[in-house]
């Protein structure tokens, strides 16, 4: 994948994001923020690469700290989103 392919994916994903986010109901904007928070922690991929690689002691530890921080977010973000979404109930008829 060259830079242009990656840029293409990025630009198209921005458009997907734009339309998908506008379709989110305003009532769920707080869970939206919590879940985007959780998924932006996919940055853990970079932290895992650094933590697993040999060759730099400092990079390994920076990576490990990154893994901890991103994990807080991933587990915390998805858990708090699930907790919020479980509260949304329909009227009993």
């Amino acid at each position: 994948m060259d830079f242009i392919s990656i840029l293409s994916i990025f630009v198209l994903a921005c458009f997907v994001g734009y339309y998908v986010v506008w379709s989110v109901t305003p009532a769920l904007h707080t869970p939206l923020m919590a879940v985007t928070n959780a998924i932006s922690s996919v940055i853990i991929v970079g932290a895992l690469v650094a933590a697993a690689a040999k060759g730099s002691f400092e990079a390994t530890w920076l990576g490990l700290i990154g893994v901890v921080l991103a994990s807080v977010n991933i587990f915390g973000g998805f858990a708090v989103t699930a907790r919020m979404l479980a509260m949304y109930k329909k009227k009993e008829r």
Partner: peptide, 9 residues
């Protein structure tokens, strides 16, 4: 993809 989604959001 995630970055673009969260950024737009």
């Amino acid at each position: 993809i995630t970055g673009a989604l969260v950024g737009s959001s």
